[in-house]
């Protein structure tokens, strides 16, 4: 019990000191409220402990039965509160214990998403460009297949030459057929000149 009292006094002193520091401007508002909250919590714990002890009869005195029954209810309530407080202390993490650790924030997720998005866009660009180059048909300025075109809008012009060589002279006939289907018939070959008989100088009379 003495310990609780001394703790309460200590807490009260701390409260006063805190109020003084805050009034003098030695600590920031944020820090003030944080410390005040911590001290309040300690004070509550202390109160709970005190109530528990009182409930256990260590601080008991002679009272009426009603008083005791009321006190019993109250002590039950206090015990529940104390238990609750203990549970809270046990399982709820003190914010100060995780002060040094870096908690992933929404902003951090945003950064990661942005980086992923940029990386994906770059990847998509590279893949898209590559696919485009892969599938695009290059202009066929020069055909891969060798082709020859000999169609003509003009009528065919053929210059055929037939050479006929008779026995004693040569005669050349030029002709130009107008169609490809007609077979030109060459002129009949002229008969070679007959050799004139020469009278025998020493002819015998018959």
């Amino acid at each position: 019990m003495l310990k609780i009292v001394s703790d309460r006094k200590k807490l009260e002193l701390k409260f006063e000191e805190l109020e003084r520091d805050y009034t003098q401007g030695n600590i920031s508002k944020k820090e003030y409220f944080a410390q005040k909250r911590d001290l309040g919590r300690d004070m509550e714990t202390l109160n709970a402990a005190e109530r528990v002890r009182r409930m256990q009869g260590r601080m008991g005195s002679e009272k009426t039965l009603d008083h005791w029954s009321e006190q019993e209810d109250e002590s039950k309530k206090l015990a529940e509160e104390a238990e609750k407080e203990e549970m809270l202390k046990k399982y709820i993490t003190n914010p100060n214990s995780i002060k040094g650790r870096e908690i992933p924030t929404r902003e951090w997720f945003g950064k990661r998403a942005k980086i992923s998005l940029v990386a994906f866009i770059v990847l998509a660009l590279v893949v898209g460009t590559s696919m485009g180059f892969l599938f695009i048909n290059k202009p066929s300025e020069v055909s891969s297949v060798s082709m020859l075109v000999n169609d003509s809008a003009f009528p065919p012009v053929a210059n055929n030459t037939t050479t006929i060589t008779p026995t004693n002279y040569t005669r050349t006939v030029d002709y130009t057929p107008t169609t490809t289907t007609n077979t030109p018939t060459p002129e009949p070959e002229p008969e070679p000149p007959k050799p004139t008989p020469t009278p025998s100088p020493c002819g015998t009379a018959g």
Partner: peptide, 29 residues
């Protein structure tokens, strides 16, 4: 057309020839 190609021209007064390579028969489109 994009899918066509240049061809050698063997016609009288031929300046240029283009053809569809997919229709070539005996080297002629």
């Amino acid at each position: 057309p994009h899918s066509w190609g240049l061809a050698k021209v063997n016609s009288t007064g031929g300046v240029a020839a283009v053809g569809d390579p997919q229709t070539v028969v005996n080297g002629k489109p």
